[in-house]
Simulated scan of single mutants.
Amino acid sequence: MTFDLKSILPVEPHAFVFTFLIFISICAQSFSQQPTNYTSFKPGGQWLADDGEHIDSHGGNIIYVESTQTYYWYGEHRGTPRGASCYSSKDLYNWKNEGVVLEKGEIEVFERPKVIYDEVNKKFVMWFHFDNSKYLAAELGVAVSDTPTGPFEIQEHYRPNGHESRDIGMYFEPDTKKAYIGYAADHINKTIRMVELSENYLATTSKDVDIEAHCEGPGILKKNGKFYLLTSGCSGWTPNPATYYTAENIMGPYTKHGNPFVGDAGNNSFNSQPCFIFKIPGYKDAYLYMGDRWNGRGKPESEYVFLPITITEEGEMEIHWYNEWDLSMFTPEKKN
């Protein structure tokens, strides 16, 4: 008995095979984009997003949008295309890949994106390190978007008040709604300066001071009226011992303290470099250390070191290592 393949297929055989392959591809993609089921942080390990790929969002920050009760994590997308990536989450453990929200295009160096939400004008504002391949331009860049997932459009780039700017950190003061950028400045990060942003966060102001700290990668928090500035040394992609500073005013003067990483056997900030300190909403004194584990150079697969920050009763900053931890470590705030 023989069969005519054409008599039992609605399309030509080669077309059927092509359609079948497309179907298999779609199914494989669907299965690879299953939601993750993380219930804790595991510092330094592989961290997959909903697409089954390692999260590619380095040197950035996290914001929380109250209206949607959603976290957004921005950072350097070091894969293709290069630029700024965005991931969203409801619990800080499991992240959805929202894609590249700003492509760097012809920008030779795009680093350290930090995003802040302007509640008044309903805009998302991104600041970043804008530079040439020799790191001699040393400018701040700013971009804006109407939505958290972009696209962000670059507005301008320049040296703030004439000062070189490379690694940046950001701090938002919830009481006054003011925002500040700490930036590694002048003569290859000779010092860190602190500059206040305009009311709409789209420009730097003339309120710009030298806090006399030879370091980079600044992260900032405030507790009991005191500001804590966490920094790394200047050693390129190689991790080093961190240092923290304190001040009664965010513009200084700052007092230098020691390394807050307790039990740091490698003397290298648990093999990481700070990029941001995130105050987790809904918990009392819940400060999240965000660090990058570059492993000698910036790669898409570079890992992250997320750890809780403790401010002791004596007012000292401490960061302890945990192989695994979760938000139950913090005390929930009482709801009114």
Score class of each variant (00 low, 15 high):
T255I: 15
P281T: 03
L288K: 09
Y289D: 09
C275L: 00
Y283G: 02
T246W: 13
K279N: 14
S272L: 13
I250E: 03
T255C: 09
K279V: 09
K256W: 01
I277P: 04
T246V: 12
G282M: 12
S269W: 02
G263E: 12
A265M: 03
K256D: 03
Q273S: 05
E248D: 15
I280V: 15
K279T: 15
T255Y: 01
N271H: 12
S272N: 03
K256G: 03
P260I: 00
G252L: 05
G282L: 04
K256R: 15
Y287M: 03
N268P: 10
G282R: 07
S269F: 05
A265W: 03
N249H: 14
P281G: 04
A247W: 00
A265N: 14
Y287C: 06
V262W: 08
N271K: 07
N249R: 07
P260D: 06
F276M: 12
D292V: 02
M251G: 09
C275A: 08
P281C: 02
N268D: 15
K284E: 15
N249C: 11
K256T: 13
D292A: 07
N259K: 12
C275P: 01
T255G: 03
K256E: 13
Y283F: 15
I280C: 09
C275V: 12
K279S: 13
I280T: 10
A242H: 01
A286T: 03
G252K: 01
P241A: 14
F261W: 06
G258E: 14
N249Y: 00
F270R: 07
A286N: 07
Y254E: 10
E248L: 11
Y289E: 10
P253H: 11
K279F: 01
I280N: 09
K279R: 14
T246A: 10
N271I: 08
E248Y: 00
A265I: 09
P274H: 06
Y283W: 14
